[in-house]
């Protein structure tokens, strides 16, 4: 049961930032009303971050990963989350064997 000091600090920083976002809404409840472009930009934050995290793995690692990512994206609109993950993992294993 060991904890690295830098890892501990990273976890504490993530925890503090997350807690602040969770309680910040309590203090701005009567003032925060976003509309139009500002709301669109705010709503875009989660997908924009998620895509940025995986883009290098999905697009620039190799053909197997890029094709598997495309297959996963098609599955994602039709299947539940876990089935989507299963399709993605199975395709990458197959494609790595073929390519």
């Amino acid at each position: 049961m060991s904890v690295d000091t830098t890892t501990l600090l990273a976890i504490l920083a993530m925890a503090a930032v997350t807690y602040i976002t969770r309680i910040a809404g309590l203090f701005v409840a009567d003032r925060l009303v976003l509309t139009g472009r500002a709301k669109a930009a705010f709503d875009a934050i989660p997908p924009a971050v998620l895509v940025a995290v995986i883009a290098p793995t999905a697009l620039t690692t190799g053909w197997a990963e890029a094709i598997a990512a495309a297959i996963t994206a098609i599955a994602a609109f039709r299947l539940p989350l876990l089935a989507t993950v299963a399709v993605g993992v199975a395709s990458v294993v197959l494609l790595r064997g073929v390519i």
Partner: peptide, 9 residues
């Protein structure tokens, strides 16, 4: 690749 697939989902 599971995370990449999970994120796409």
């Amino acid at each position: 690749f599971a995370f990449t697939a999970l994120f796409i989902g």
